[in-house]
């Protein structure tokens, strides 16, 4: 009896599979971007930002790039995106291993503000050097005033929201 049931079920599954393959969308519904998998030991630290999947943007968390390029009538959408990637790579590379959060890029008029949380891995003096260097270099590159708005944390655990 059970064997019969299994065969039947398998057939049903097969049938289902056949019908499924006719659809185009269900395969795409499995969204993975911006989500983190639970680790075996459940000790993987997440920040608040990481803990919230992308659909929570504008509900529980906010954007990492603030600009009006993609609004109706906005200018330079492509350039803005590429520049933002450049800024992120430059900042994380210049502040080697110091940025504990995402690099937030805010554009208002011609000013770009780069915000983020850094750990206190280097002396404040060196941090000021890097601030001056990053601001000046990026303003040469992007040809507009660039400002950094940093907050520091004594311990990386300070920004852990939960462990998964």
């Amino acid at each position: 009896m059970s064997i019969l049931k299994n065969v039947l079920l398998q057939n049903m599954k097969l049938q289902k599979n056949i019908t499924r393959s006719m659809h185009l969308s269900p395969a795409c519904l499995k969204s993975q971007a911006g989500r983190y998998r639970i680790s075996a030991k459940k000790d993987f630290p997440l920040t608040y930002e990481m803990a919230n999947p992308p659909h929570q943007i504008a509900h529980r968390k906010s954007w990492n790039s603030w600009n009006t390029s993609n609004l109706d009538g906005g200018i330079r959408p492509a350039e803005t995106a590429v520049e933002d990637i450049f800024v992120r790579k430059f900042v994380t590379g210049t502040w080697q291993g110091l940025f504990a959060s995402e690099v937030i890029i805010k554009r208002q008029h011609n000013i770009i503000r780069i915000a983020g949380i850094t750990s206190r891995g280097i002396s404040p003096r060196k941090m000021y050097f890097l601030i001056g260097y990053t601001e000046e270099f990026l303003s040469f590159w992007l040809q507009c005033p660039v400002k950094m708005e940093l907050q520091t944390i004594a311990d990386k655990k300070d920004i852990v929201f939960k462990y998964i």
Partner: peptide, 12 residues
Amino acid sequence: FAMAQEAGRKAA
């Protein structure tokens, strides 16, 4: 601190 920031700008 202020001079370090300026030194960074000079480096750029």
